[in-house]
Nucleic acid binder design. Structure first.
Length: 602
DNA sequence: TTAGGGTTAG
């Protein structure tokens, strides 16, 4: 039986019964059961049928199978589809489905090739395929490429639909171009393409991510009016706002929004809880976070990987190894599968609590078992090695990344450059910098700040200032750049230059922060200017920057060596009165000179 | 098509 069935016969049958696709498909699966092994050609015939029947998921699975199991390139599948195509209006949908399959399986270039080839053959994909491809680029954070593809699409004469506009809004929000995102909203109205709830949610989330909760709330309120009564906030809208408040540290308002959400009849989902659990833990209240975990279970929502990851992360952060381990076991017990986040959280948690060997072992296990490693865990380990000045270890890990096909990113390079600068090996830092440029990674401000710091430590202040000037002309500088330079000038004894920068930064709209004041207070003390140091701390409070335990401990350390015990006690009492909690270094600073006296006497 | 969790600088 199987001998008499050939590919061409299958295709002929499919062609004959094209108007009875259900029947043709049943025939194909029947011969499949009879051990007929489908070739590319007959598979493609099946795919055409599935698309005609609008069974897209199965069509996608079939194409995915051709690419992933049989190892065919998207281009081969495209050829197969074209060859087995008998001429019917279902064909654009087939090609759209192929593009979708490519993006789903991560074949980014393949998807683009398919679109391009079809255009050259005069066989156009629809706007949906373009949207799918552009959405995929945004998911990969390839925003520059997104804009290029978008322009290309427009140049071929396509017009944007609501999904395209939503993608544009999404891209602009990712680039923090919020005002432009809002102007796209008005352009949509002008083009009579009505914004939907997704459009609003993206802008609202963009505002939240930039910390502009006021604007986000305003948009939520005006959504109805702005959309002519068509659009109302949904759970995504509320979750964005709740997350926004959590991230700026205002949990109380986040909770209020949560209550409001329930009042208007929108149910909280696992993301609502996940967001609030992280918010409370981030704000220092793990207890509240656990309460919410219980609450979500009571409401029939099962904590998922994200919730476990969050809580484990914060337990590690407060050095509760036992609690973190218990939750990890609970996770395994409940068969909640760990992901890359879990592994990097564990890696970081182990490192920060002193279990570096265990962290390295975990990393090897994850790599060995193909559990889906990414650059994160390696970056964490490399950074840890750099911090503990083990540059040989860091270098070895970088090698391991290459061996396992992991591409170093800006964080990898940033950690290495910073590490080499800090051990005084500027030459190696420059080598890494060159490698980064060769890998076409554009340095960001973090990298530049590390380089400036390296130059400062090398006492190459002139070069450091020169680099800063260049960056400034590109608008690339922040409070850290200034703090680094101020620290550099202080280190080389140029305290006047340091103060000149201090006054310059305000004029440029960079607000000084705790680190700025603490740096200057430290050096004023070092130069014996105790009164000026004290005055600066007053000025700090006056400018709304609250002195922390480092500010007080710096003063106490120097006062206890050079001033009267009464002055030290006065500082301690003031610290406590202002609600700053003395820590171990504070007490050490108060007590250690007395211990030295004791030692001298005995 | 949109929302939650992990990595770099002073």
């Amino acid at each position: 039986m199987s001998l008499s069935i050939t590919d061409s016969l299958v295709c002929r049958v499919v062609g004959k019964f094209w108007n009875s696709p259900q029947l043709a498909l049943e025939f194909c699966s029947w011969i499949g059961e009879k051990n007929f092994s489908h070739s590319l050609e007959s598979c493609c015939a099946v795919i055409h049928l599935l698309v005609k029947l609008r069974r897209f998921d199965e069509a996608l699975a079939c194409m995915g199978n051709l690419m992933c199991v049989r190892g065919l390139a998207p281009f081969d599948v495209l050829e197969g589809l074209i060859n087995s195509y008998e001429g019917d209006d279902s064909s654009p949908a087939v090609f759209d489905a192929l593009v979708r399959t490519c993006t789903q399986f991560g074949a980014t270039d393949g998807a683009y090739e398919v679109i391009k080839k079809l255009r050259m053959d005069g066989c156009w994909v629809t706007i949906h395929a373009w949207n799918n491809f552009m959405g995929h680029l945004l998911k990969l954070n390839e925003i520059d490429r997104f804009w290029k593809v978008y322009k290309e699409m427009i140049s071929y004469g396509y017009s944007e639909n609501v999904n395209t506009f939503n993608l544009i809004v999404y891209a602009l929000c990712k680039e923090c171009r919020l005002l432009e995102a809002i102007s796209v909203f008005y352009r949509m109205l002008k083009d009579e393409i009505w914004p939907n709830v997704v459009t609003f949610n993206m802008i609202i989330d963009g505002a939240c991510k930039m910390g502009n909760l006021e604007l986000a709330l305003k948009l939520v309120k005006k959504m109805g009016v702005m959309s002519g009564g068509c659009v109302r906030p949904n759970s995504v809208t509320y979750n964005c706002i709740i997350n926004g408040f959590c991230k700026i540290g205002n949990i109380a308002l986040a909770e209020e929004v949560h209550i409001e959400m329930t009042k208007v009849g929108i149910e909280s989902n696992e993301r609502t809880y996940g967001t609030l659990i992280d918010g409370h833990a981030r704000g220092g209240s793990l207890e509240e976070a656990f309460k919410l975990c219980n609450e979500m279970v009571e409401r029939g929502l099962i904590p998922n990987t994200v919730v476990y990851n969050t809580v484990i992360h914060w337990l590690y952060k407060v050095e509760d190894m036992e609690g973190a381990s218990l939750l990890l076991f609970d996770m395994i017990d409940k068969r909640i599968s760990p992901d890359q986040f879990t592994y990097s959280i564990l890696t970081k948690g182990l490192c920060r609590n002193g279990y570096v060997t265990e962290a390295l072992r975990l990393n090897n296990q994850v790599i060995g078992k193909n559990l889906g490693e990414d650059a994160f865990s390696h970056n964490i380990l490399i950074n840890y090695m750099c911090r503990s000045k083990n540059m040989a270890g860091a270098k070895q890990l970088l090698g391991s990344m290459f061996v396992h096909g992991l591409i170093p990113d800006l964080v990898t390079y940033g950690s290495l450059i910073d590490g080499y600068c800090k051990v005084g090996n500027v030459e190696h830092a420059v080598q890494i910098y060159d490698r980064m440029i060769k890998a076409e990674e554009n340095p960001n401000l973090v990298i530049y700040n590390s380089v400036i710091n390296g130059l400062c430590k090398e006492a190459a202040m002139d070069v450091a200032k020169l680099l800063t000037n260049v960056l400034q002309s590109m608008g690339l500088f922040d409070v850290i750049t200034y703090n680094t330079l101020i620290n550099g000038y202080c280190l080389s004894g140029k305290i006047e230059a340091a103060f000149a920068l201090f006054s310059e930064m305000r004029k440029l709209g960079i607000l000084e922060n705790r680190v700025t004041y603490n740096t200057l207070i430290n050096f004023l003390c070092k130069f014996g200017c105790f009164q000026q140091a004290k005055d600066l701390m007053k000025m700090m409070a006056h400018h709304g920057v609250i002195p922390d335990s480092i500010s007080y401990t710096t003063l106490i350390t120097h006062f206890s060596k050079n001033c009267t015990p009464e002055e030290v006690i006065e500082l301690h009492d003031e610290m406590v009165l202002k609600g700053v909690i003395p820590d171990r270094p504070t007490y050490r600073a108060i007590v250690s000179p007395l211990l030295q006296e004791d030692n001298a006497e005995t």
